[in-house]
Computed example of a mutant assay.
Amino acid sequence: MNTNLSLYRIFCSVAEHKNISKAASELYISQPAISKAIQKLEQNLGVTLFHRNSRGVLLTAEGELLYQQVLFAFQALQKGEEDLKKIHELGIGQLRIGVSTSLCKYLLLPYLKSFLERYPHVKITIDCQSSLHTIKLLEERKIDIGLVGKPKHLRQLTFQPVAQLTDVFVATQTYLDNLKVRSMDTKTDFIKQGNVMLLDGENLTRQYINEYLQANKIEPNQVLEVNNMDLLIDFAKIGIGIACVIKEFVQAELDTGLLTELKLNSLIPKREVGFAYDASSFMTQTMKWFLDHVNEHQ
């Protein structure tokens, strides 16, 4: 469209009033300026839009056709402005979040609860995947924000930390006592000889733990892989084996003695968890609301 939008606004006003003088009064423009704008529009389109007479102006057949379309366009623009105002006033929006099941349960839900109390009209969709898969979805721009363990290489992603997590090995005391019967001497022997339960190999947490085990020359003889940390915790609680879990997620069980933490010779370093997003792409108002909310509640 090569025609200036203001020309169409002048055209609509003249068409509605059927009078150049009244259109000039409504738009606070001189009558010669109105006439010049109509002439320019007619020249641009190559058609005559008005019949002139002593009483005013009337639309030609071409002018009537154009008027209906322009009127529809201006109504659509007005509705768009009203919708934007409504979105701003009510906090309407959509947010796509990627997160692992465990991080969703223990970290994301409290943020979501308070966020939706503040912005009840925001539509939230959650894709529960591993942190590695969540990062891939972020890079493909299929989600807006991901709650993940901090990766080694962020690439184009921005990372906003919200917590530090501690990985620990836990089991029931009964399971550990049974291992001791089989002549266990040191704490690390528990992991070497016991049934060690870990997240599957595609998980970011598993990769982090693998690096720790390799650095400390600890090689479990028997490994049970699970793709969900809640299952690891449940398996540990019924005495199936030794699970590598996040300490903050089993603190209640440790406090009550339902689970016992293995005291290793070398502590597993804490790691950061936070919200990652692609700052190089367009950031929606809803994303800004959510990230501001996270900052306020840390």
Rank of each mutant, 00 (worst) to 15 (best):
Q193N: 13
D230P: 01
K36W: 07
V226Y: 08
R141I: 00
D278F: 08
D255T: 12
Q68K: 15
G98N: 04
N216S: 00
Y212V: 01
T174V: 10
Q298K: 14
V245A: 06
Q69K: 13
D167N: 12
E272N: 10
L41E: 02
N44S: 09
K86F: 06
A215F: 06
L199V: 05
L224S: 10
K288H: 13
I87R: 13
I34V: 12
D177H: 13
A276R: 02
L116D: 01
T286G: 10
I10M: 07
Q75F: 03
Y67P: 00
E139V: 04
T174S: 14
N2M: 11
H133K: 14
L199R: 13
A23P: 01
L116V: 04
L7A: 08
E202C: 03
D292G: 09
I143M: 03
E272D: 15
V226K: 12
S114E: 13
E89H: 06
P32Q: 03
Q156N: 13
S25N: 11
N53C: 09
L108P: 04
S100I: 07
N295R: 11
G201W: 00
P110E: 09
V273T: 09
V162G: 06
L199S: 10
F50N: 03
V294F: 08
K237R: 15
G146F: 00
S280L: 13
E117D: 14
Q68Y: 11
Q222F: 14
V294L: 10
I191E: 02
Q251N: 13
L262G: 05
H293W: 11
E296V: 01
S183E: 13
